[in-house]
């Protein structure tokens, strides 16, 4: 099993996809965080709640790119046909999916960490430039970094599962973006009682912050972990079934 994980990690390193995802993520975080921290009124951003909502963009964007990384680790194999040599080398398909889950989760720990650190850093710099006191404490930052990394790792698993079911690269990427950026935001904005149980909101609960949502409207961190683990398990199971039951063209 460990050699399959190492093979998957090598695959991640040997195309430009991973690097491009990280560049795009950094650019998006820079843009979004700067926009918020510089344009929001002092009244909005001087409170702990306001500052959490801005730094929470790191959670959402980190989760999104972790899911994309996971999804592309399998959809790119279907797109370019490398799934065939991959399955010839390891005909036990459930092992291939398991290796992709592990490799995706490992790399996404770093993706989540990077996303949260960037957002927190840019926000702190922006606030300092505007002369606004930072209300976030060491405990907040710790939860943000650790929680954001863990949430991203679980989102990578969700991405692998969805990618294995959908197989089509564009379909999986668009689906994940639409879900996290549009549907979840709409859901939690309009029906918060249900929306707080959605995967993105659960990631916010784990990290202590997600964009546009106050921590007070999210579930407890432990429940967030339980929810996100459950989502990841369901996606992984669906992806494994879809891969073991269907032909590879």
């Amino acid at each position: 099993m460990s050699h399959l994980v190492r093979s998957e990690l090598l695959k991640q390193r040997t195309t430009r996809t991973t690097l491009l995802l990280l560049v795009w993520m950094t650019a998006l975080i820079l843009l979004v965080t700067l926009l918020h921290v510089l344009s929001l009124s002092s009244a909005h951003i001087s409170s702990l709640d306001g500052q959490l909502k801005v730094v929470g963009w790191g959670t959402g964007i980190g989760a999104l790119f972790a899911a994309l990384l996971g999804a592309m680790s399998i959809t790119s194999e279907f797109r370019h046909g490398t799934i065939r040599p991959t399955l010839l080398a390891s005909p036990r398909r459930e092992r291939v999916i398991a290796a992709k889950l592990l490799a995706g989760a490992l790399t996404s720990l770093l993706v989540g960490l990077l996303a949260e650190a960037l957002t927190a850093g840019i926000e702190a710099a922006g606030l300092a430039a505007r002369g606004i006191h930072i209300h976030l404490g060491a405990a907040d930052y710790l939860q943000l970094l650790a929680g954001g990394a863990a949430a991203a790792a679980l989102f990578a698993a969700i991405g692998v599962g969805i990618g294995a079911v959908v197989r089509q690269q564009i379909g999986a990427v668009v689906g994940l973006c639409v879900w996290l950026l549009l549907i979840e935001t709409t859901l939690i904005g309009n029906i918060p009682s249900a929306g707080k149980y959605a995967p993105g909101a659960a990631a916010g609960a784990i990290a202590g912050a997600i964009q546009t949502q106050s921590a007070s409207q999210l579930v407890a961190p432990v429940l967030g972990v339980v929810l996100l683990v459950a989502y990841a398990a369901i996606a992984a199971a669906a992806g494994t079934l879809a891969t073991t039951r269907r032909d590879v063209a």
Binding site: L10, G81, T82, L88
Partner: peptide, 27 residues
């Protein structure tokens, strides 16, 4: 068993050496 399929299954962005290495690692 070794197989070469007609579809030519390579990631265009990956080098030939790394294509072989990822398969070598897996096995």
């Amino acid at each position: 068993v070794g197989a070469v399929l007609e579809s030519g299954d390579f990631d265009p962005g990956r080098s030939g050496r790394n294509h072989l290495r990822m398969l070598a690692l897996a096995t």
